[in-house]
């Protein structure tokens, strides 16, 4: 199957590195990227929770508008937003479609629209914050929220090891291909080939696990020598590591503005509500 082969060939080290570089060099100098990571995360948490508290479409639309404006100044590619919206809308579409089969009507559509609006706001908020956040800063922010040191370390470790591990997997996968045999008979919709590639992808994990185990041992030994365990046990190390994080005036202004905006939107929403009519049972 041609498309599968194409897809598999995409797991090249080069492509992954490019993705990583996008994350690494991506939109760091955007407005959201320059915020203190802790402030950004708190901001996100507010918008991950607040949409669940309102069923008033005016309020939700207000938040949506805020997100769209923020995203546009964060230079997030419009494609991402469109894809996201498309995904959420089709999902709602299926629910509406099936509910019509169960005797639903347009109230269902309205209800779902509100629901989808909530999900969209939350997703956009996460894109606004995390698409432009440096993984290192993210990990430090988590550390300052007192998440376990292992978790925070995991982020930067993944950042470091991903290309190596992908290359290794790629080599092993190719090792299978260089000695394997593609089924000559392709079967209906190439299913035999699909099975061949899936099986190979699974089989490749046997060598992968053993090789990674060997690799991990050196890493942990090196961590031990470099004082990683020591750092987990000593509070002053955490403070030293996080000493560079400082809340700037811009963070405070942004935060105050956001609170003000939330209050305004809620107020306007109450004045001019667009609400679903609730049919009595």
């Amino acid at each position: 199957m041609k498309s599968i082969k194409d897809l598999l060939s995409k797991i090249t080290v080069e492509n992954i590195k490019i993705e990583l570089m996008r994350t690494a060099y991506g939109n760091k100098d955007t407005f959201m990227g320059k915020l203190d990571p802790r402030v950004a995360i708190v901001w996100y948490l507010i918008f991950a929770i607040i949409p669940w508290l309102f069923w008033n479409n005016t309020i939700l639309l207000g938040f949506l508008l805020y997100m769209v404006v923020l995203l546009s100044i964060s230079r997030v590619s419009p494609l991402i937003i469109i894809l996201l919206a498309f995904g959420l809308v089709t999902e709602a579409g299926y629910i509406i479609f099936v509910s019509v089969m169960f005797g639903g009507d347009l109230t269902a559509a309205m209800a779902l629209l509100t629901f989808t609006l909530k999900l969209t706001i939350i997703s956009l908020a996460s894109i606004a914050v995390f698409a432009s956040m440096d993984p290192e800063k993210f990990s430090d922010a988590l550390m300052s929220f007192r998440l376990p040191g292992q978790v925070c370390f995991g982020i930067s470790y993944g950042y470091r090891m991903l290309p190596i591990l992908i290359e290794e997997y790629n080599n092993i996968f190719n090792s299978f291909r260089l000695r394997g045999k593609v089924p000559e008979d392709r079967g209906v919709i190439h299913w035999k080939r699909v099975v061949y590639y899936c099986k190979t992808a699974v089989f490749a994990f046997y060598p992968m696990m053993l090789n990674t185990a060997k690799r991990t041992r050196t890493t942990v030994e090196a961590l031990e020598v470099k004082g990683f365990t020591y750092s987990l046990k000593h509070e002053e190390v955490r403070k030293l590591k996080l000493s560079y994080l400082r809340v700037q005036p811009r963070d405070i202004y942004f935060f105050i503005f956001t609170i003000f905006l939330i209050i305004t939107v809620i107020y306007i929403g109450h004045l001019y509500p667009i609400e679903r009519e609730i049919h009595p049972l």
């Binding site: 470790y157 090196a222 961590l223 020598v225 470099k226 020591y230 750092s231 190390v237």
Partner: peptide
Amino acid sequence: NQLVRPTVFDEVTFAPLSFG
């Protein structure tokens, strides 16, 4: 496998930082 941090400077400061 001994290099555990993403960038060069992070890597070379990792040990002294971990020891506080």
